[in-house]
Amino acid sequence: MGMILSVKDLSFSYGARKALDRVSFEMNPGEILCVMGPNGSGKSTLIDCVLGIHKPDSGTLLLDGKEVQAYKRQEIARHAAYVPQNHSVTFPYTVREAVMMGRTAYLPAFGAPGAKDEQLAEEAMDRVGISQLADRPYGSISGGELRLVLLARALCQQTPLILMDEPTAHLDYRNELKFLELVSSLSKEDGISILIATHAPDQAFFFESTGCNVSALFLQKGVVASKGRPGEIITESCLEGIYGIRAKILESDGEKTILLQKSL
C-alpha cells in the first residue's frame, strides 16, 4: 500500500527566518505520528505545509502520492482534514451545521449540503459521541465537546489523513483521555492516519500501549532531531536535549510515563 504522506527535504521560511529545514518523514495508512518539540519548533508550520496553506521553499511533499501544491484547494481537503488548536466561535451555528462544514470539500462551486451530507454529519457525530448535542449552538458547549465537534467535522471530510494541532490543549484529564482513546480507535478501526502535534510525549506512550501503529518525531528549530518508535526515542537524555529539562521515565503496567523534575 502506498504512503499517505511522504515528506522529503522540506524547507520553509518566514522571510529570513527558517521555520523548517530539510524535514523528511513518511506516514503509512492507519499510522499515528506524534510530532513534538518546543514552542516555535515548526510543528504548526509543518501542518500548514501539508494543508497547502504554505508553499514550501524546497523539497517534496506528497499527499497520497501527488505533490500537494499540484492539487486544487478542494482536492487537498478530500485528502487531509484539520483539527485546529484554537477555534473562536463567532456565529453560534448548531453543532450539526458546524460538523456539516466538513462536507464543503465535496460540494460543487455554488452548492450547499444536502440530505446525504446531513446523514454523513449524523454518522460523524455518532462516531465521536456527540449526537445528543446536534441541535445545540456550538458556542455554548464545553471546551472538550467543542474539540469533539471539530473532530467530527474532520471525520465528515472522509479523508485518509487528519492533522491535529495540539488538540488536547486546554482539556481536563478525562476529556483528554477520551479524545486520545478516540484517536487511537480511529487509527486502529477506521485505518485513518493521524498526524498529531503535541506537547505531551506521554500521549505517544499512550498510543503505543493501546497497540496503535505509532511513531514519534521531534522537531527542534525546524530540524528533525529524532524519529522512531516512541519507546525507543523518547528517552531521558532526549528530553534533556530538546526541552532542556531533567525528567525520569517511569514504567507501570506496561505503560511508560514521564515524571518532570527540573528545568535546566
Binding site: 494543508l51 496553506i53 484547494r73 478542494q74 481537503a77 485546529p84 463567532t90 451545521e97 462544514m101 464543503t104
Partner: peptide, 23 residues
C-alpha cells in the same frame, strides 16, 4: 445567494476555511 454556504465556512476563519476546501 449562490455562495451562501461558503459564507458559513469562511466565518470559521481563513485558515480553517482553506483546510475545509474553500478557495
Amino acid at each position: 445567494f449562490l455562495s451562501r454556504w461558503r459564507i458559513n465556512v469562511l466565518s470559521m476563519g481563513d485558515r480553517e476555511a482553506a483546510a475545509l476546501g474553500v478557495d
